[in-house]
Amino acid sequence: MTISVENTLPNYDNLPDACIISLAEYGAIAVHGTEQSKYLQGQVTCDVNTLTDNNLLLGGHCDAKGKVFSVFRLINRQNIHLLLQPITSINQSLAELKKFGVFAKVTIEQTTDLAFYAVAGKKATAVLHQKFVELPNSLTPVLQVGSTTIVYLAGKLTRYLIIDEAKAAEQMINDFALVTYSQALWNLIEINEGFPLLAPETVTTYVPQMLNLQAIHGISFTKGCYLGQETVARMQYLGKNKRALFSLKSKSANNELITLQAGDIIEQQLGENWRKAGDILASYISDDGIYYLQAVLASDIDSTTNLRIKNHENSALSLVELPYNLAE
Rank of each mutant, 00 (worst) to 15 (best):
S4V: 06
S4M: 03
S4A: 09
V5E: 02
L9R: 07
L15A: 15
P16C: 01
A18V: 03
I21H: 02
I21D: 03
S22A: 14
S22L: 08
A24N: 15
A24E: 13
A30D: 11
E35R: 09
Q36L: 13
K38M: 14
Y39H: 13
Y39F: 15
L40I: 12
L40H: 09
V44P: 00
T45N: 04
C46A: 07
V48I: 15
N49F: 12
T50I: 07
T52S: 14
T52R: 08
T52D: 09
T52M: 15
N54W: 08
N55D: 09
L56P: 09
H61A: 01
S70K: 07
S70W: 07
Q78R: 10
H81S: 13
L83T: 06
I87F: 06
T88P: 04
I90H: 02
I90V: 07
S93I: 05
L94G: 13
E96A: 14
L97R: 10
K99G: 14
V102P: 08
F103W: 03
T107S: 13
I108A: 02
E109R: 13
E109L: 11
T112M: 15
D113S: 12
F116H: 06
V119L: 08
G121L: 04
K122G: 07
A126I: 10
A126V: 14
H129M: 15
K131A: 10
K131R: 10
F132P: 05
V133A: 15
E134N: 11
P141H: 02
V142L: 11
G146R: 10
G146L: 08
S147P: 14
L157Y: 12
R159P: 15
I163T: 05
I163K: 00
K167A: 15
A169M: 04
E170H: 12
E170S: 11
Q171W: 04
M172Q: 11
M172C: 12
L178G: 03
T180Y: 05
T180P: 05
S182W: 03
L185N: 08
N187S: 14
I191V: 01
G194V: 00
P196V: 01
L197D: 02
L198N: 01
P200Y: 05
P208A: 04
P208K: 01
Q209E: 13
M210L: 09
N212P: 02
Q214V: 14
I216L: 04
H217A: 13
G224Q: 13
C225D: 14
G228T: 07
Q229N: 06
R234N: 03
M235F: 08
G239T: 05
K242F: 10
A244S: 06
A253D: 03
N254C: 13
N254H: 15
I265A: 12
E267I: 05
E267V: 04
L270V: 14
G271H: 06
E272F: 11
K276S: 13
A277T: 06
I280P: 07
I280T: 01
L281M: 08
A282C: 08
L293G: 02
L293W: 01
V296M: 12
I301N: 02
I301Y: 08
T304F: 11
T304I: 09
T305M: 14
E313L: 07
N314I: 03
S318G: 11
P323F: 04
